[in-house]
Write a protein that binds this DNA or RNA. Structure first.
Length: 194
DNA sequence: CTGCTGATCAGCT
DNA sequence: GCTGATCAGCAGA
């Protein structure tokens, strides 16, 4: 298990493959307060212009989705309901697809996470997309960074024994898209959001 | 400028 | 399981 960021080459694979292969990797965030990191245990794929649940559905190119059209591996953050969510841009330039990181298993900087989250239970630290960003100190200003460079980066992690898949969460109003099995998680991991 | 819509969370029942 | 918080981004005028 190396501690330096993963190669940029890693991100050049299909969105569904990337969502699957990100599981087990370690996500790091360096801030002035210290280092925090967790193993990725849950992801969701958003497949661009034909996926009604994606921000880029219908080829909607705006200031917010612009980053999704770029090279893979860039950080796409956005805010909703006062929470910040973090995505990994995937696919080649011109194809606006991304993978949402939904849950982590805390590994490094637990003390910092408890301080930021103000909760008692370890499970509550990172078992949701808005929770893990707060625990690691990921903010919308990380938009446009790259996951192979500090301060927000991914490293090799562990090989997982079993991975499950199923429908995505929180997109009930998007017609057929709500049924697509584009959510992946480590089978049985207690930090998975549902 | 105005109004609407969430890829969520916490707290209550 | 249900509801409200609370605001950026976008569409329409």
């Amino acid at each position: 298990m190396s501690k330096h960021p993963i190669s940029r080459k890693f991100f050049y694979q299909g969105t569904l493959d990337l969502a699957y292969n990100l599981l087990g990797k370690i996500l790091y965030k360096e801030t002035a307060e210290g280092l925090a990191a967790g193993k990725i245990v849950e992801t969701e794929a958003y497949l661009g212009i034909d996926d009604r649940a994606a921000h880029s559905y219908g080829n909607k190119r705006t200031k917010r989705t612009e980053i999704m059209y770029g090279e893979p591996g860039y950080v796409y953050t956005f805010e909703m309901h006062t929470h910040c969510l973090v995505n990994v841009v995937s696919e080649l330039e011109g194809q606006p697809e991304a993978v949402l990181i939904r849950a982590l298993e805390p590994i490094t900087g637990l003390e910092l996470m408890y301080e930021r989250r103000k909760v008692q239970k370890e499970k509550e630290l990172t078992n949701g997309p808005g929770k893990l960003t707060k625990a690691l100190g990921i903010i919308k200003q990380d938009y446009g960074c790259h996951f192979s460079e500090r301060p927000l980066y991914i490293t090799e992690g562990e090989i997982l024994e079993s991975i499950s898949s199923g429908p995505r969460i929180g997109i009930e109003k998007t017609g057929e898209a709500r049924f697509y099995p584009y959510r992946f998680w480590e089978t049985g991991n207690r930090f998975v959001s549902k």
